[in-house]
Design a protein around this nucleic acid. Sequence first.
DNA 1: TAGTGGTCTAGACCACGCA
DNA 2: GCGTGGTCTAGACCACTAG
Lengths: 240, 240
Amino acid sequence: MVTQRAIPLHRRIRAAIEAKILSGEWPPGTRIPTEAELAATYDCARMTVNKALTDLAADGLIERRRKSGSVVKRPVLQSAVLDIHDLKAEVEAAGFTYRYTIATRKIRQATRADCERLQLAKPVPVLALSCLHLADDRPFCWEDRLISLAAVPQAQDATFIHQSPGAWLIGEVPWSAAEHRISAVSADASLAALELAPGTPCLAIERRTWDAEQPVTHVRLIYPGDAHALVARFAPSKAG
Amino acid sequence: MVTQRAIPLHRRIRAAIEAKILSGEWPPGTRIPTEAELAATYDCARMTVNKALTDLAADGLIERRRKSGSVVKRPVLQSAVLDIHDLKAEVEAAGFTYRYTIATRKIRQATRADCERLQLAKPVPVLALSCLHLADDRPFCWEDRLISLAAVPQAQDATFIHQSPGAWLIGEVPWSAAEHRISAVSADASLAALELAPGTPCLAIERRTWDAEQPVTHVRLIYPGDAHALVARFAPSKAG
DNA sequence: TAGTGGTCTAGACCACGCA
DNA sequence: GCGTGGTCTAGACCACTAG
């Protein structure tokens, strides 16, 4: 047998099994051969087959169980990786000039509403910001943000005049967990800066961020509904 | 050293490195030790370290390059796994009774608009459906769907009286690629079944599905904005 | 050219969970 | 029990690429 070195063996095994699943030859519930059987089929070590199957399981195409073996899972059509791009990158990718202005900036002891927004156990000093993002000087997105000064004390000295809070925070809080909430709202007086007719439907994206279990920030981004949409793709062969 | 068999070694190695990244001890750009160094540190085989690092790379926490080694990546805060649950499961999980009714069902040659919705190269026969999903007999979601009869000819004989098109399709087209688009719209006459005041903001989720490069279906789901939101979580340690 | 990750082997022992 | 996947080893050769 001629070994094709261009594509690793474990990938070829994975692809072969994936093809059988995607084509419907192995419908959901089908029990796939054991690692030992596949190793014999492809004349390779069990570890190599294991890598292929572990990969497929990570991508949700199969489910692995001891003793009973691996079976093809039912598809979860409704799951998708959502990429909410960085505002500046998003605007510039669309070929527009990005601009940003800060509207308000206040430091206060967290109110009860602030505690709920940040999911704080007890009040701490917070920085409340609101900003406007523009594409070609056209209002594009309204941002309403709360930053916990307990988690990010250095925010107290940041002016956010030249850099948006989001971009600044990425540099200060390297990695974190986040929760997103996407909903639809109606434009009202609080969104006057977006220059929309009252009642215009808007997309609202809320993001809560933690660093090591500590609440960091809560942001609410409002986009005019006709000017923005979120797009997500899901392809089994490309998921990873 | 006492081996803790409860947690596999490669997971413990992964967790140790992840902790250094998440804590900020290893900020983005930091070059992490080579596989050989880590294998010596943890007194194990290089393969074990390799599994830990491959894992971290798959989750996007590090980037691996030959010769130059592995480095901590910049975080992508705005990426999240979005789970758009099955409508029936979603309603029942919330403790309501799920009900479904079909409003219209028509077979026609694809119009130009249909071709655009399904991204068809040339017109084929299609099945156009509209349905209402109810939670505790309260209108919950309006569905507007197009199914390509070229891809799913057996849809011609399905009545969709007892089973919603989405549930039926999952059984007929086992696995597929999908594209989602989420936006905000205003309630209008076409959504009369949702019994909303005109202008009520609604969340619109569009999903296009392919099976082996062939367009299968396009669906538009409309939810009242105040009654529904999409939630996604992103936690580096849990991402898979 | 030499350092680094990518892949692969041919074994091994163990834990889980059906029978 | 005992079959299956989960993990791990101690090597090996190769491919890529930065210096």
